[in-house]
Amino acid sequence: MALIVTRRASDSLSSEITPPHVFHNRRDFIKTAGLSLLAGAATASGLFSINAEAAVQRQKIAGFSKSSYGADEKLTPYEDVTTYNNYYEFGTGKNDPAHEALLFKPTPWTVSIEGAVKKAKQISIEDIFKIAPLQERIYRMRCVEGWSMVIPWVGFPLADLIKCAEPTGNAKYVEFISLADERSMPRVRVPILDWPYTEGLRMDEAMNPLTIMAVGLYGEMLPNQNGAPMRLVVPWKYGFKGAKAIVKIRFTDKMPQTTWMKAGPNEYGFYANVNPEVDHPRWTQSSERRIGGGLFSPRIKTKMFNGYAEQVAQLYTGMDLRKNY
């Protein structure tokens, strides 16, 4: 990591990832809350504030280039990007991952490349960082639940990783498998989903220049709650396609069964392209709420392929997107 990561003078040592004062603060908060209830007076702190500041180590990524993607977009604040996460391995509440993933260790890390490849291999995260020059990509992210963000990812095209993996002619699909470690991911013990989290892409989707492997955001190493050390970002698809904490990449000739397809086949399909015309049984997909706009921000219209139609629409010519949702 030392090759690519620089520390800011203000950064804490790794031995202090969760400094004792964080825990003490929590204790104090519980005490104060209890006392104030006893006194019959709700104090201005505690009950009336839901933002518990988490002291996390933030590391800048030294070498990455800017790109023109999304340069005109208004970024979703860092605070929102890192505290509003769907990452069920760490809890189903949007706030849970930011707290529950504090102690998660994204290094050392190896990614296993298997299936229809010339030679199965293991790549360390350090080597993955060297696969291709890192660049910033500002992408819109549309969640299937009807909200969206604009996130400045740091990463590299998935195509570069695939070239390095040397898939054979049998590789028609790529499967991404996330870590499912009961010890570091508390909610993996609960069978809410069929762990490990599995996602997949068709080969041409995976090779599309828009598809990236993200290793950072806001110029910093990817926070644990956003999928450290490495996650998939496919900006024209609903957010759940972006598998986090990837440990295995498998090339196959058959369409993989993804976690959400198993959980609700009538709600989640393999393609999961953002499509304002194909409604979800629960959520309106024709409009979305941009996170960070505050209490009085109206919905905005959702665009076909999340506004990336120009780059990706040709991948689906002749396909019925109502059936292949």
């Binding site: 504030s49 605070e79 509003y84 706030n95 909200w147 996170i291 505050g294 209490l295």
Partner: peptide, 10 residues
Amino acid sequence: QDSLGANPIQ
């Protein structure tokens, strides 16, 4: 206080 979280409407 603007502290209703990332999705205050929800």
